[in-house]
Design a protein around this nucleic acid. Structure first.
Length: 785
DNA sequence: TGTGCACCTGTTTTT
DNA sequence: CAGGTGCACA
């Protein structure tokens, strides 16, 4: 057999092994070396391609690219039989025969943006490769990858490796104190605005000095640069890093310490980046540095799905990949496995109005499917009514609640929908929104743990020193702060030695009391298991007592803390080497406790942004009106690319739907306390009208007489109104707090509160299974037990 | 030092 | 409309 024949046979065997993939997907799997750009349209089996690629690298190495010696006749025979299906798939033997320099799993780095994506990748790798090989692949987010690197080497930059990670709330507090201490007006320089600018500077790898140099004649910029410098020095003093620092400092580390970079380059020889269209300048630089030695870089993304420019993503990274990495291969995945052709045509129609994109056209062989329904409602109430009615109707015809998702542009839009869903007893869940670790009580407890773990963390010290109230007020804390800054000792040390500082004499007893509690806790932190330690902390700090005095709300908060405790226990059980700092790190980077549980049979509501990466049988896109979507900010922006970003968002939203797509607009909408009239969204006009089935009010908007409410209603709407009226006259039900009740969807629960409304009452019920819900007593399918 | 009320201001968000 | 913030007062 010639070498040519060997490689051709082996290639056919490999192609047979990956026969479930389509041909561009296989191309992505086999292109192991060199720079590769995979342009993966929505629903094109991107993750499948990535997983198979990693598996292929580990199983077969460069078998597709290089021949390696001769083939024994019986191996040759086996391959031939395997290809034509007459021999069984013997993985061990296939690997033996085919593999050429198989890649070791720990040499592979797969970077994602969210923990969810990283978790999914891990899970799918485990399913394909098995536990042991999958565990060695480093699949993680940008941020946790950087933490990993920095924990090892950050001492080069003058931080210690037990650094604390600040979240955006911590950053904001720190910035507030910088602003007030530097006597700068927080009216002219709102902390969040300053932080945004600093964050975007860090994203662009601009240091405080560089920003300063760049803004000599601009007072505003100069002030921000000064604040940046101050903020950064305070972070360092607290041995803390904010989210942007994780990337920024890793890049600096690599640039200043080539040996550190080299170590990582050798460790991560094969790099894969998911959602590449969302990378920022600093993330790009990080990738460029890491892949600089071996150039085995595969990036996967879709420029049409870039919707995070507002937080630093530069679409140019993906648009200029081929230019930045010469000799790169570009692979397009355009076959869509998710949606009907109608939905894809709509998406293609919208996105084709954007300039400056890589031309792609999604297609499917799934068939045309149903038309898209456009419903024009009178106002946001009847819009919500339409959505609710349609879902009830489809569910009664065999659909499940979990088939539906409602996507909106702004969180504020969920209100009317929620109310209507509660009325109609449609179980729903808002995905995204308030996050568990952002709750005050959780942040307080975590602050206690942080201070115990890292006493120099003065920001978190501030948070807890007088929480619960223990008579250590603002002025005392300022004194402690000054001393601690002047003498370079931790605030807690200052308290411990309060007697040495005459200014603190008056408050000495209270200060000593607090510091001794913290000392005791610090001592016990290593001895006790997490749950017992947390109980002790709650007890000794008086936090528990404080919550218990707060009644119902305090009880909910205590329950949340219990939840935190269970996640600590979970961490303790699952981690090989559990430690307080390890737990805090996990919490800092893994913000999602409100997990998405697809098993639950509920309708999901979320913003269009939050829907990225998800898919649903039937999707409602609500609020398709000018000034809502696209939003007024984008419409009035001087920069036309803002509209393009909205359009990409529309593209993302449309392509979430597998089978059916409903789009709604309202003639009148109450938003932020005032009513406005908007014409239908321009994105609607960008969809070929033959794909759309129009429903709802058939008159043109009567902008001049808002509020007459006498608009001609469609028959559907009249039906709805009648139904609502009917159910309103059913016998009123009376509940009082403490009543045990049962609901035919939510199960059993206890009434928390009752408030009278017009001719009904709003009751709040704590259900055993689904948590607290607000229900209308007369509408809800609920009865006393 | 702690509390209550008036005022104000509103995209999208992961880490 | 609703939640967060800041300021005045106890």
């Amino acid at each position: 057999m010639t070498e040519k024949e060997i490689i051709s046979l082996k290639r056919r065997a490999l192609e047979h092994y990956f026969r479930k993939l389509n041909s561009p997907q296989r191309e992505a799997v086999f292109a192991v070396h060199g720079p590769v750009l995979v342009l993966a349209g929505a629903g094109s089996g991107k993750t499948t391609a990535i997983i198979n690629r990693i598996a292929g690298m580990i199983y077969f190495g460069s078998a597709y690219e290089k021949a390696d010696g001769n083939l024994f006749p019986d191996d040759q025979q086996y391959l031939t039989d395997y290809i034509n299906g007459s021999a069984p798939e013997d993985m061990g033997r296939l690997r033996d025969i085919l593999a050429v320099y198989p890649i070791r799993p720990w040499n592979i780095l797969a970077i994602t943006f969210t923990n969810k994506a990283a978790g999914e990748m891990k899970a799918r790798l485990t399913a394909m490769l098995g536990e042991s090989e999958a565990a060695d692949v480093h699949a993680a987010t940008f941020h946790s990858t950087c933490v990993h690197i920095l924990r090892r080497s950050i001492s080069n930059l003058g931080y210690s490796n037990d650094f604390t990670i600040y979240d955006s709330d911590d950053s904001k507090r720190l910035m507030k104190s910088c602003i007030s201490d530097m006597n700068i007006s927080d009216k002219k320089f709102p902390p969040s605005a300053v932080l945004n600018e600093i964050s975007s500077a860090k994203d662009k790898l601009i240091s405080p000095k560089e920003l300063m140099a760049d803004s000599q004649n601009d007072y505003r910029k100069l002030t921000i640069a000064k604040l940046y410098a101050e903020y950064q020095s305070r972070l360092k003093r607290s041995n803390a890093l904010d989210f942007d620092d994780l990337i920024y400092l890793t890049v600096r580390l690599f640039e200043q310490f080539p040996e550190e970079l080299e170590y990582c380059q050798n460790r991560y020889r094969y790099i894969l980046v998911d959602e590449y269209q969302d990378t920022s300048v600093s993330q790009f630089r990080l990738i460029q540095l890491l892949s600089g030695r071996y150039m085995n870089l595969c990036v996967v993304g879709d420029d049409d799905q870039s919707i995070y420019r507002f937080r630093g993503a530069t679409i140019e990274n993906i648009l200029s990949f081929e230019h930045t990495f010469p000799n790169s291969r570009v692979i397009r995945l355009e076959q869509n496995y998710r949606s009907t052709q109608t939905i894809l045509d709509a998406a293609n129609g919208v996105i084709s109005h954007n300039a400056g994109r890589k031309e792609k056209k999604l297609w499917t062989d799934a068939g045309a499917g149903d038309k898209i329904t456009w419903y024009k409602a009178a106002d946001e109430i009847s819009e919500a009514e339409y959505v609710a009615k349609t879902i009830v109707d489809l569910v009664s015809h065999g659909a499940s609640y979990r088939d539906f998702a409602i996507l909106y542009r702004m969180n504020a839009q969920s209100n009317s929908l929620e109310r209507m869903f509660i009325r109609n007893n449609i179980p729903y869940r808002i995905y995204g929104g308030i996050r568990f670790y952002e709750r005050k009580e959780i942040k307080d407890i975590l602050a206690y743990l942080s201070v115990i773990n890292n006493p120099s963390d003065s920001l978190r010290f501030h948070r807890i020193v007088n929480e619960p109230k223990r008579g250590i007020g603002e002025s005392t804390v300022t004194l402690i702060d000054n001393i601690s800054n002047d003498l370079r000792m931790s605030p807690l040390d200052v308290m411990r030695q309060a007697e040495s500082f005459p200014v603190l004499a008056k408050r000495m007893a209270k200060l000593k009391e607090f510091s001794s509690i913290m000392d005791m806790l610090t001592e016990k932190a290593d001895e006790l298991p997490f749950d017992q330690f947390l109980d002790l902390l709650l007890e000794k700090t008086g936090y528990k007592e404080m919550l218990e005095a707060q009644g119902d709300e305090g009880l909910t908060r205590l329950e949340n803390i219990e939840e935190l405790k269970s996640s600590m226990i979970e961490y303790e059980n699952e981690s090989e080497d559990p430690s307080l700092s390890g737990f805090l790190e996990e919490v800092a980077l893994f913000t999602d406790v409100d997990k998405y549980e697809p098993e639950q049979d509920v309708v999901l509501m979320m913003t269009m942004h939050a829907a990225k990466g998800l898919e649903f049988e039937q999707v409602f896109l609500v609020g398709f009106e000018e000034n809502v979507f696209p939003g007024n900010r984008a419409i009035h922006s001087i920069n036309p690319s803002d509209i393009e970003e909205e359009r990409r968002l529309a593209y993302v939203a449309i392509t979430r739907a597998k089978h059916r797509l409903f789009i709604t607009s309202a003639d009148r909408r109450m938003l932020f306390g005032s009513t406005m009239c908007n014409s239908r969204s321009r994105f609607l006009a960008e969809i070929n009208c033959e794909l759309i089935d129009k429903q709802g009010v058939s008159y043109e908007p009567q902008k001049q007489n808002i509020g007459t409410g006498s608009a001609v209603l469609s028959s559907l709407e009249q039906q709805l109104r009648q139904q609502t009226a009917k159910s309103q006259t059913s016998t009123p039900k009376i509940f009082s707090p403490g009543d045990k009740v049962t609901h035919n969807i939510f199960g059993e629960g206890v009434v928390l509160s009752v408030s009278k409304m017009a001719n009904d009452s709003l009751i709040e019920v704590a259900f055993d299974k689904v948590g607290t819900k607000k229900l209308m007593a007369n509408f809800a399918k609920i009865r006393k037990l």
